[in-house]
Design a protein around this nucleic acid. Structure first.
Lengths: 328, 328
DNA sequence: CTGAAAGCGCTTACAG
DNA sequence: CTGAAAGCGCTTACAG
């Protein structure tokens, strides 16, 4: 049995294909009882409008391309979920592209994706701005977790929470802090470093802040940094993200140094890992739900009204758990 | 400037649209020098075939629908990556659906997805078989991590590795083992339980195996199971997955009980978590790459040749790390 | 190897 | 509120 079309339904109901089409695309334009009959027999025949045909006629695909830096980094799955959730709200589906799977810095990726989608959400790209903009071209797009002049973006501003984290360590009696910096090409890493530097300038005179890095945002970076951390004499550690914090805890444990008894550490992002760690990690919680929701909203505006770059900022918040304690 | 089409290119080159079309869809049918001229000006004009139009003409979307149980469960991201990688190899893109985001057991989800894609990969579904088959209907599909009569599937057989894990514990001197069972509706959980039961029947006479559960496959299940684990007197613990193992370690730590000094534990799947844990987890490593590759391969066959249910099985392997040690 | 033409299944101005 | 018709941009039998 062939699949139903607007015409097979129209013939069955003795009406025109136009009307059947309208019952789905502009239901308000169809008389109530007609619309109901159409919908009823459509349901009976298992009919749904053919997406390709609709796409060809309207120039819309109903697809949002979502490019994430590395899907295996636990930061992204909650973001993917919230974007998908928001996309469903505007009747769009998500075409996921894991950039790391194709080569982390491949601009061709975005170019291949563009013609298939109505718009693009690009999360945590580390491409140089010029390359990124060239790759996106005229496709409606919004950036997540990074900005670029002329493009809409939604970012998580952790500056205040991060300064709160530093204050928290100082209140616990820590006087020597060390910051483990994230990847040089990461927008978030730059911001986080800047936030801590700003804080350091206004910190109590007896507080010292060291810096280590930049590091790749992986577990191993944290573990490998442990000798330098120990040498710095710092007792309070601010890691670029939860992953690195986790590595530091592991590296300290290997040397018989306990967290939070001997060292305090705070992460950033609050990925699943942070809660399942022993001890659970004090960290800066990212509002994944808001990030995703705003990204889709913004993208909807860019698609509908063209590129009027908007920049929305949501804020992370400090979540104190078990990896920080009074210095002893 | 309007986007280029086969006709705009054809006009520019003084040839027919058919030939331009063939240069992309059936390049072997076009004379070499003509094809090269077409491809060259296409590149110059930034032309790529319109997917919707192609889809309408061919009945193919070039899209694979991938339904995962819960994208925030670290089991899935590596699977998503490998599927995406394999899909790229057959020039398909991946439409990701996070089932948990819409309601874990929503059969309507698959139905809405079906018309948009050429085929479906459904990972770790917990729908009753009848519902699952009804939801999939006539859409080409392959199941991952579960089987169902009449449907193609690729599963990871951990039976042997799990028995190896039990042997490993026994060799370390453990005589009382406890199995933390996974969710009742999970195919994988049923298989893992069966594997251990089989092993238990042939185990040395002085070895005892207890069972706890079924549990949800989350961190909290593991932690909450700790009192019962302690009461069982078991020193060797086999957790349904890494997540639960991680919870057990946390729960034991809260009570001052150390792993692996006081208890040995083995997980299953070898998600990222397993490696970043302190101590790193002894676990059964899942071959994510193979799972994804076979899933896409099988799906390609179902799409091309119709449903001839095939069942491929890949095997997990025991990876011994720091969470198991001689009983003391 | 190439071209003219029909057809894929919708949407949407236009006319009524 | 409804219908007839054109058009979206491809693919592909068919004819040459």
């Amino acid at each position: 049995m062939k699949a139903a079309t607007i015409y097979s339904l129209a013939a069955e109901l003795g009406i025109s294909g136009s009307t059947v089409s309208r019952a789905f695309s502009r239901p308000d334009l169809v008389k109530d009882d007609v619309r109901e009959r159409i919908l009823a027999t459509a349901a009976a025949r298992g009919y749904a409008p053919n997406r390709a045909a609709r796409g060809l006629a309207t120039g819309r695909t109903g697809l949002i391309g979502l490019v994430v830096l590395d899907i295996t980094n636990p930061f992204f799955p909650p973001l993917v979920r919230s974007i998908e959730h928001a996309a469903a709200g505007i009747d769009a589906s998500v075409l996921l592209v894991d950039a790391a799977a194709v080569g982390p810095e491949d601009p061709g990726l975005v170019q291949r994706l563009s013609p298939q989608v109505d718009g693009l959400i690009v999360a945590s790209s580390r491409l140089p701005t010029a390359d990124l903009k060239a790759a996106i071209g005229a496709t409606p797009a919004v950036l997540v977790n990074r900005t670029a002049a002329g493009l809409s973006s939604v970012v998580c501003d952790n500056s205040e929470a991060l300064r709160g984290a530093a204050d928290h360590l100082v209140e616990l009696g820590h006087r020597r802090l060390v910051l483990l910096r994230g990847p040089a090409a990461s927008w978030a890493a730059q911001r986080r470093t800047a936030a801590i530097r700003t804080w350091a300038k206004l910190a109590p005179a007896d507080v010292q802040v060291f810096e280590l890095g930049p590091f790749e945002a992986v577990f191993e970076s944290g573990r490998d940094a442990v000798p330098d951390i120990l040498e710095s004499g710092a007792t309070g550690i601010l890691a670029f993200d939860d992953f690195m914090a986790c590595g530091v805890i592991a590296g300290l444990a290997e040397r018989g140094i306990a967290v939070p008894a001997d060292r305090s550490i705070v992460g950033c992002d609050d990925v699943l890992l942070a809660r399942t760690l022993t001890p659970p990690l004090t960290t800066v919680t990212a509002p994944f739900e808001d990030l995703g929701r705003h990204a889709v909203e913004l993208l909807g505006e860019v698609i509908a009204r063209g590129p009027r770059p908007a920049n929305v900022k949501v804020a992370g918040s400090l979540t104190v758990r078990g990896s920080t304690a009074p210095v002893r």
